[in-house]
Amino acid sequence: MHVPILKQGDYLIATIQSVLSDADLLQLRDDLADRVGQFRSRGVIIDVTVLDVIDSFATRTLRGVAHMLKLRGAETVIAGIQPDVAFAMVQLGLTLEGVGTALDLEEGLAFLNAKTKRGGSVWRGPIPSRSAPKAPLDAQIRKANRRRK
């Protein structure tokens, strides 16, 4: 299964779409190495949300990709490792030491912005307020209908 790589400004975003075999992972590594040079990218996000398992081979490959791209001048962040997958990785003693990780794509972008922009800082948006919950949907619809009249 081929992993599409999108260019987004200075960054590349590789979103894994289905479970990957070892060969697919190695292909992704080679594709990213090519594209970083081609587009002069400064950051790469690998979205692994759909991966069912990250085993020793996948961990080693992802770590290898991140270190290799670092040598090419790009930061890598692995986004979207699922809680169960993380749990199994910990039990296997696997770590992604020295590799950026993020909860999801949005956090991944924030991470790269902080890492690649000189003097930049992470802007995580306003802290969501818990005191003012949104009105329930039917109330919102009623309000909108009233406005329409």
């Binding site: 070892d22 069912d52 398992v53 085993d55 169960d84």
Partner: peptide
Amino acid sequence: GSDPTVIAAAISEVAR
């Protein structure tokens, strides 16, 4: 819970 994933990870390692 996490057991199906843990089992899948163990299978992945022995199959590899």
